[in-house]
Each structure stands twice: as structure tokens, then as C-alpha cells.
Design a protein around this nucleic acid. Structure first.
Lengths: 340, 340
DNA sequence: TCTGGCACTCTAACGCCGGGAGTGCCGGAA
DNA sequence: TTCCGGCACTCCCGGCGTTAGAGTGCCAGA
């Protein structure tokens, strides 16, 4: 593409991002950036329209960049201001560094994304199920209950309250723990089930009830689950493009149902890394052509993987939002890595 | 109030609940319920307006019940259909009974409320912080890490990964556990802190690091927190009264910020029990005069207390919604009581 | 005490019109 | 060849007046 064309496309996009309104040739000329008359600009704009970079809502309404146009801008024309990252990083670090737990951290990251961008922030986390169990311990809780503490190979801890064998002393429990460890540590779930069953059948331990309870756990352990935090949807409604109730409804439904968003998240997960932008119809969310989504993967310790980002209007300032998402993802990764 | 007046007020409310539109005298007369001419109905309606039960948006627009009118309807006129409860109870029970955990249960209750009423379902839960610790156990995890499992007096289990004392055998850990139990079980947090400090100072145990780690936990344990689930906001937007973006914004903001809603929840918590209705301006949520909130308390085991309900349009069918909320609250209570 | 009738009021919907913004194209100038 | 000023054209948007419809209040008669 010719230099002049790129230049003008850039100006159209910039003007559009600011106001959300179609931009006409006169506005660009008056603005003085280009040093060209409206007429010349018109010629180029007509050309750009033919190329699919611009579109006009109707005859006398100026031009609006198409998804392709915005894509070209983001990929080629946009200059990411990298020294904004200094102060940005401080802010993000300040808000995230003292989060008291994993969920609190992710929640804060969501809020941080929302408050920095003024759009809807979104954090998705998937906790991988464990493969094998490392260790199992019985902790007496009361005269009727004992707590089974199971440590898995991904460092996760599962608790299960089960019935205490009658008239069992602490020493006996301790002994049972040891035996269970000999029997089960290093086993995957399937093996655990088989061995427990076998043990129950052979009735070597006179603690059937306890084994049965454990078996019940092995049949349905609380597996690693996925979770999603969203915040700041309210702010989105401030944008004039959401004056139409239809768009709002689609947006809210999409956020609530999460399935469609999951599809995007999956795409980002498979990507190696970095920030990925979905502009307008690129994300294929129905009725949300006016919405863009900016996502980045983050990585915690081995068993945690996730994606975070923002949902905003198509006309967002990508050069500002992308570093924010990038920076937040990096910090979340960092914080997660240090924890657990 | 006279019989006829009550009768007509009831009819106006019923008609209004169905359509959300102002109702005129002719409509009521045509409907045939009353056996009166429009003119007579008009007289009564004028009287009801003077009493503050009805209001007219403008001269030629029929009447709409005021908050007072709806309140009178709900308190006095409304007949709750109690044999709807049969099938209702089955539905609720079916969806809630096999929830795999507390949070899953509450999330499902939210969804159930939303799907039964087609409004926004909302569940609020507050977990009381524990008072004393019942028991503490050290579970070896790896050569460097040991897991402290702390069981509190409310039956809750807290885990904390801490550094393992160098060259400690399992037997030694077990011994340390026992000593810690002697030292700490039955203590509240303050005492735990003091005793740990004392122990560290006297250096009787050669496991300073471990004690320091524990102290760090005692300084900031993961305290009982409160949480709120909301779902089905999207459905609310289907209602014609949400055609105005302003109302939507207020609603979304209220749901997101939760503070205002918390105020309502508090009111319901202090109530003894049963379903409580906030009609229109009664809940004092700004800009949400068209919204009603129906809440009920539920009760779990000793350390869990909460409130659930729905947020819907002012013109909801209270006689249908109130049993739903009631029934859900009862089932959540029941399910929670059986668990943990 | 109820009812039919009548005059009155207010809104929502419709069609119309003019101003404004922007375009495409053409012919002339650098 | 490239750029620019000018001109005719198109289309949207907001304001205006009109009208149909819905509902009311009140009065007089059964």
C-alpha cells in the first residue's frame, strides 16, 4: 500500500477511535496533519473504500474503518508507546502485589483491567486436574469424624471429612495413615480405586467404612475446575455505541453464558504467547460486531493456566489497551509463580 | 377499605402485572370480572387515586398502581397458590440435590432462581470467621515442604504450605504435631499468636522457621469471607421496561458494586425469617424505582448464613415469585445442613 | 346508586420539510 | 501527472403540525 494511503488510513482510524463517529474528508483536512485538500483526501478515501479498508454507513456520512482497516492499523500502522509501560507497571504491581490468595489475585487483576481501560475486565483460569496422589493423611477432628487430607502431584490439597472408625485412638489412626500411604501414594485415580476395592474385599483392614468413604471420594474427587471473573461491564454502558438495548443484551448474555467467550479463550491458549486482538466480527460473537476483545495468556505454576483481557468497544485505543493487558498478564504470571 | 374498592384495586394490579401498561376503566369493564360499567369503575379509581393507591402517568393514560398500592396488594389481597408448591418443590429439589459442593450448590440455586422466575437470581453467603482452632496437623509433602492442616471450631479446614525443618523424619514431624496440638488446640487466634511468640522466644523447639511460618499464618489467616452470586441479568433486559439505557446502567452498577444490595441483605438477615419484598422505591436503590427485590434468608450450619432471592421488575407476579424464593431458600438450607 | 353520554386532554405516530454534512466528479492550475 | 476548487447530488436528522386513539371527569337521567 502506498505511503499516502497508509497515512490517511491511519488518520481516519485515529479520528474514529476518538469519537466513534464517521469521519469526513473536511475534518481530516482541517485537522492539518496531512497538508492536503479535502478533495485529494476524498480520492484516497474512495480508493481505500474499494480496498475494503473503509466503509460509509450512507452516502453523506463520512467513512468508518472496517474490521480489515482496523486490523491493518493494529498490525502495521500502530506505534505502541513503550515508555508508558514504566508508570503502568508500577500501578499494576502496586495493586496486585499484596493480594492475599489466588482467587483474590485474579479478582483484583479483573478489577485492575477494568479500571485501567474503563472497559470490562475478564480473567479466566483453568486448574488442571491432578494425575496422581502424593500422600494421604488422616487427621482426627472429633470423636466421630476424621479428616482425610490428600496431597496431589500438582501440589494441590484436597480435604474430605469421613466417618471415624469406632474406638480408634490417635495412634491407630496414624498407623492407618501410614498403611494408606504405602498402599496409595504415587497411584493415579484408577489405581486408587482398584486398590481400595481390593483392600475392601480382602478385608485386611477392619476399617471398611473408612475405606468406603475414601472410595467414594476417589469416584468423584473435586476435580480441577475452571472459573471466570468479569467486572466493569457497567462502565461499558457509558459508551454511546451501547445506546441500543440489543447490543447490551447480546453482550450481557455472552458474558453470562461464557461459552462463546470460552471459544476465544481456547484460541488464545493454543497460541504461544503475547497479546491477541479480536476486532469486531473477527471473534464471531453474534450481534457483537461493535465489540473488540483483547486477550493474553498468563501462566502460573504447572497446574494453572489461564487467559485474561478486556472486552471493549471496537473503537478502543488499541495502543493503550494492549500494553495494559500485556503487563497485567505478565504480573499475574509472576505473582502466581511466586505463590502456592 | 371497602370491599368494592379492594376488588377493583386487585383487578387493576392484576391487569398491570400482566402487561406493565396503565389500565383504563374500559379494559376492566370489558374483562367482565366486575360486572360494572366503566363509569362506575372510574369513580372508584378516582377515589383510589386520592388514597394514593393508584396514579396516572398523564390525563388520558389509565391508572398504574403505586408502590403503596402494590404493597397493599401483596400484604392483603394476594392469594398465594399453595398447591403450585408441589411441582415447584420437585423441580428445585431435582436441580439442587446433586450439587457437588457448597459453592456449586449456591451457584445452582442462583441459576435456579433465575430460570424459574426469568429474572436475575441472587445468592449471598457470609461465612463466619472461626473463633478457635481445634486441631493442627503437619503433613509432609516433599523434602522441603510440609503442609499444616488446621481444623477450626466451625469445622472449616485451612491449609498452609510451610518450610520443612531440615533433616526431619516423619516421626519427628508427628511428634512436633502432637506438641503443637498440646500447645494450641482450643486457643483463639490471639492466644495462638502469643503462645507461638513465646515458644519462639524460649526456643524450646528447634524449629524456629516452622513456628515463624505458622505465626505468619496466624497473623493473616484466610478469614471467613462473604460472597455473592448473581445470574440471569440478561433475561431482565428482555422486559420492555428496560428499553431505557439509564435503568439498565443503574441496575448493572448496583449488581456490580453490591454495596447497595448488601444494605438490603442486612435488613433481611436481621429479620426472623420468611420472604421479604421490596417494591419499587422501598428498597431505596437510586434510579431503580421500576425494580422490585424479593429476598429470603437461608441458614446453613452454624458458621454459614445467607440471603437469596431475585431482582425483577416492579410488575412481577409476586404470588408466583414469592413461593419460588421461599422454596429455594428452604432447600438450600436443607442441603447445607446435611453437608459439610 | 349506577350508567350512558359528551366534552376535554394528552400522547404517540405520521408525514413533511429544510438545513447540514459529505460525496463524486469535472475541469483547470501547478 | 498530481492536486485542488467548485458544483450538483444524496442522504440523514430534527423540528413542526396534524390526526387518531385512548382515557378521563362530570352531568343528567334511570
Amino acid at each position: 500500500m502506498k505511503d499516502r494511503h497508509e497515512h490517511i488510513l491511519g488518520e481516519v482510524v485515529r479520528a474514529y477511535l476518538g469519537t466513534g463517529q464517521p469521519v469526513g474528508s473536511r475534518k481530516l483536512a482541517d485537522q492539518g496533519e496531512l497538508g492536503l485538500s479535502p478533495a485529494s483526501i476524498r480520492n484516497v478515501m474512495a480508493e481505500l473504500e474499494r480496498q475494503g479498508m473503509l466503509a460509509s454507513p450512507h452516502t453523506s456520512a463520512g467513512r468508518v474503518p472496517t474490521d480489515t482497516g482496523l486490523r491493518y492499523f493494529v498490525d502495521t500502522l500502530m506505534a505502541v508507546d513503550s515508555n508508558i509501560n514504566q508508570t503502568l507497571e508500577q500501578k499494576v504491581a502496586g495493586h496486585l502485589s499484596d493480594a492475599p490468595g489466588r482467587n483474590a489475585l485474579l479478582k483484583r487483576a479483573t478489577d485492575e483491567l477494568a479500571s485501567l481501560t474503563h472497559f470490562a475486565g475478564m480473567v479466566w483460569v483453568r486448574e488442571q486436574g491432578f494425575d496422581r496422589i502424593n500422600r494421604i493423611e488422616l487427621v482426627p477432628v472429633s470423636s466421630e469424624k476424621v479428616l482425610a487430607v490428600i496431597v496431589t502431584d500438582v501440589g494441590e490439597v484436597q480435604n474430605r471429612l469421613i466417618a471415624r472408625p469406632e474406638e480408634s485412638s490417635e495412634a491407630q489412626l496414624h498407623e492407618i495413615s501410614q498403611r494408606l500411604n504405602e498402599l496409595l501414594s504415587g497411584c493415579n485415580l484408577e489405581e486408587v480405586r482398584v486398590r481400595l476395592q481390593h483392600e475392601m474385599d480382602s478385608d485386611r483392614l477392619k476399617v471398611r467404612h473408612l475405606l468406603e468413604d475414601l472410595k467414594r471420594w476417589a469416584d468423584a474427587p473435586t476435580e480441577g475446575q475452571s472459573d471466570m471473573f468479569v467486572s466493569g461491564q457497567g462502565q461499558l454502558l457509558e459508551m454511546p455505541e451501547f445506546a441500543v438495548v440489543d447490543t447490551i443484551r447480546s453482550l450481557m448474555t455472552a458474558i453470562e453464558e461464557k461459552e462463546q467467550l470460552l471459544h476465544l479463550v481456547k484460541q488464545v491458549e493454543s497460541e504461544e504467547s503475547g497479546v491477541k486482538v479480536f476486532i469486531g466480527s473477527e471473534h464471531a460473537l453474534v450481534n457483537m460486531e461493535q465489540i473488540s476483545v483483547v486477550l493474553s495468556r498468563y501462566e502460573g505454576p504447572s497446574n494453572i493456566v489461564g487467559t485474561l483481557g478486556v472486552i471493549g468497544p471496537r473503537r478502543m485505543h488499541y495502543e493503550r489497551v494492549m500494553p495494559i493487558v500485556d503487563c497485567t498478564a505478565k504480573w499475574v504470571s509472576k505473582m502466581l509463580g511466586g505463590k502456592l
